[in-house]
């Protein structure tokens, strides 16, 4: 085989409706922003090739999801195999901040990751371009409560971004990519790719030489 294959890293963006998930992804991948709000239907991804640490070429497959449940009618099978999960909130919407932990829980339940304890999440607070008076009051304190809560705290890196003015978006996704790569390497090393779970529960009707693939 000629040439090294590029590592594919799967990233899921979650958060309440209207926090700017699509805008963040569009800003990162296409450097575009539109004020026109369009709801996201179902889930879809964009890919972007980036270089980490100056030498590692990776392809980020970023999944944008519908914040409105009615547009997620087929379920969330695409969570599987994710390498990193981005939890988004809107700095002007306190409810979206408070919902972060339920998004995290939902992800862990549905994605079936092998290391839920140390699976890489990051938190992005979007829309920092808005007027100060529109922002959640004493935001940093509330955020601190959420991230440092002993019981199910979201002790993850936090970025405050503006998809509109392209503030911090690049650097946030750089961290996302690094964390995802680490997770991917961890999975490779353990050989516990999600697909192996199925090999354990293998059905009799398959050809008997299923063990051979492990070499």
């Amino acid at each position: 085989m000629s040439g090294r294959k590029k590592t594919l890293l799967k990233v899921i963006i979650l958060g309440d409706s209207g926090v700017g998930k699509t805008s963040l992804m569009q800003q990162f991948v296409n450097n575009k922003f539109s004020h026109q709000y369009k709801a996201t239907i179902g889930a879809d991804f964009l890919t972007k090739d980036i270089t980490i640490d100056g030498n590692k070429q990776v392809t980020l497959q970023i999944w944008d999801t519908a914040g409105q449940e009615r547009f997620q009618s087929l379920g969330v099978a695409f969570y599987r195999g994710a390498d990193c999960c981005v939890l988004c909130y809107d700095v002007t919407n306190e409810k979206s901040l408070n919902n972060l932990s339920s998004w995290k829980d939902e992800f862990l339940v549905q994605s079936n990751v092998s290391n839920p304890q140390d699976f890489p999440f990051i938190i992005i607070g979007n829309k920092i371009d808005v007027d100060e008076n529109k922002k959640i009051s004493s935001l940093s304190k509330k955020l601190n409560n959420i991230t440092n809560n002993q019981l199910g705290g979201l002790n993850y890196p936090v970025f405050e971004t503006s998809a509109k003015d392209a503030i911090n978006v690049e650097s946030a996704f750089e961290v996302v990519a690094k964390m995802a790569l680490q997770q991917e390497e961890l999975n490779d090393a353990n050989g516990n790719d999600v697909s192996d779970d199925y090999n354990d529960a293998i059905n009799i009707h398959l050809e008997g030489d299923s063990g051979n693939c492990a070499c």
Partner: peptide, 14 residues
């Protein structure tokens, strides 16, 4: 479903 998924996984690894 599990049957299908393991076939897919198996064939995909191959």
């Amino acid at each position: 479903l599990q049957g299908c998924l393991s076939t897919i996984s198996h064939q995909s690894n191959l």
